[in-house]
Design a protein around this nucleic acid. Structure first.
Lengths: 341, 341
DNA sequence: CTGAAAGCGCTAACAC
DNA sequence: GTGTTAGCGCTTTCAG
């Protein structure tokens, strides 16, 4: 009983006008093309009455444009990415673009699948947090002249547009803050991800403790275990094996979440004794006991820069501009967890 | 310098075969159509070497299918929806469908825009948490023979497929649990959303307190203020004005999050004195102090049912089956916050 | 075994 | 002012 969707053709024959006329009217070019008011009204009234929606697939095939931008992150349910998504979307809307969100789980296979899925569907551009192994896929996209902007991290050996923050600086500031507040045995808990953002955070921490003549104490959790019991177990052993640590610096907000759970399980009092600071803010950290100090990325600014670069590429005929490399600064939000004891 | 994407035509002329042959080979019909191994290999090698991706827009236009299902929820960054999204996606993948996620913010205008956006782009089906005012838009989709399944809530006066949980029952169980643990002045904090899921939760609470001869104490937060300071202010006054309440039942997990923040701000000790229970679980609730008791929805089961109904419709020629109305049961997870004091 | 050609729904240059 | 028509890239029937 599947009734076919009406097409321009059907409307045209129904109203005894040509397809062209209908097309012009529906695209708001009625006046411009000097179509009579009477015909315009007739077409508008009819298409509204049957709630006609043109087939955008056909339209895209014809125009070669989909007016869609893909926004690919590690995990769209993560606070940081979700907030940014909304900012991006708002900007895009005003420019008549739609944004499609997806999560790559920082997995190469998934990233590739998603890139292919959307590339085949002719999206107009990609904003991507790249997983470690997709350098060449990104390169392919660029070679095919598809607008791409990376963010959060980038490939040092690949010329691309990107927007990142100064991770080393920010990690430095956060470590310095702990030291200034009297902490001396600072642990750094991070993942084994060897991408720029993580390496720089580690570097920032190490540089700072070394300058202060303090020891460097690093735990790397395999990325795949980050949210699992295995990861929590690693954090647990690390902390219990080293009762001498007086503070912990977590390199991302999901590690912090696992870490808090572990510490609480092991010894709730420790939550108030240990200095705690984390990369990437989260609503949770404001309401936790104690409130958790965090390095907060300038979301609005990141979103604006990303879209500025993207819209610029979308506008141009050829993508021959030299890549934009933007580095922004993050802000340290001091809360109770890093207070001087 | 925009280089055109290669098309079947280009490959065909390059290899001196016809477009048809290329199409057959790329669609794996080479053997079936008895194309010589030599030609098959030639085409495969070449398309791989240039990393050829067919234009799915054209393919969709031709076949009328996009192999895409839309999954529209209130807020994809919410724990509950995000978890469900992954379950849905996994099932869809196995059946060669892709899932596109979007958030309607429980807003009618946004919901409509998204439905139109995807309808115009010919997606094959919709799985939707409907906002209150889009009954007619859903109805339109169904009339146009587009596969639709609602979940979390539904429109009582509209015959549709839906998957929901027994909210009244679950709210009843949760309230009963508080009463059994000795709480006597139970407050119910909810939103002013007048949709089935919220009304049923309220009803479950009210029925239970009334049966137990206890008073009913309800606060309704306007939905738009739910995550704002205004909403928090309302919760704050409600609690401070009524020091006699010994427990609170939050009707959704985001209200709980706001509520916890308010209580903690106002009087941290209250967190341990007040009985607290919430609808919808959240990772946070396991690690909070105290751990928060919650009504947990059977995510896996919901996802499976939704996809079963959807895939069934996708398979059928006509959508003439009578709508499936599925009601599942939720589980009460008892944690510290609702313990007997 | 392979190719020619129609047609999916739309846009826009061109014709009248 | 309005209509005719080519063509976007693909699938698939039918011909040879």
């Amino acid at each position: 009983m599947k009734q076919k969707r009406p097409a321009l053709k059907d409307i045209a024959s129904k109203l005894n006008v040509s397809i062209t006329t209908v097309s012009f009217v529906l695209n708001g070019k009625g006046k411009e093309k000097k179509i009579s008011d009477e015909v315009i009204k007739k077409i508008q009234d009819y298409t509204e009455s049957i709630n006609f929606k043109p087939n955008l697939v056909a339209q895209s095939l014809r125009t070669g444009k989909t007016k869609i931008i893909v926004f690919m992150v590690e995990d769209i349910s993560n606070y940081f990415f979700a907030k940014l998504a909304r900012i991006i979307e708002d900007i895009a809307y005003n420019k008549d673009y739609k944004v499609l969100f997806c999560s790559n789980e920082n997995d190469d296979k998934r990233s590739r699948e998603l890139i292919n899925l959307f590339y085949e569907r002719q999206v107009d551009g990609f904003i991507i947090i790249p997983s470690a192994g997709i350098r060449n896929d990104i390169d392919d996209l660029i070679k095919k002249n598809v607008p791409v902007v990376l963010f959060d991290r980038y490939f040092p050996d690949l010329k691309t547009n990107y927007v990142v923050i100064n991770n080393k600086d920010a990690a430095n500031k956060a470590t310095r803050h702990l030291i200034d507040n009297g902490f001396k045995k600072i642990a750094f808990i991070t993942t084994d991800v060897k991408q720029t953002q993580m390496l720089d955070r580690l570097k920032g921490y190490e540089e700072c403790v070394s300058q202060a003549q303090l020891s460097s104490n690093v735990l790397e959790i395999p990325f795949k275990d980050v949210n699992s019991d295995k990861g929590k177990g690693l954090i647990h052993s690390f902390i219990t094996d080293h009762a001498e640590y007086d503070s912990v610096f977590f390199s991302t907000n999901y590690l912090t979440q696992s870490g808090l759970e572990v510490i609480k399980d092991y010894n709730p009092n420790l939550l108030n004794e240990l200095g705690i600071i984390t990369f990437d803010d989260n609503d949770l950290f404001r309401i936790y006991t104690p409130t958790i100090s965090a390095v907060s990325q300038p979301l609005q600014e990141i979103g604006e820069k990303l879209m500025k670069i993207m819209l610029n590429m979308l506008k141009e005929k050829d993508g021959s501009d030299s890549p934009q490399e933007v580095v922004l600064n993050a802000e340290l939000i001091q809360r109770d967890s890093s207070k001087d004891r």
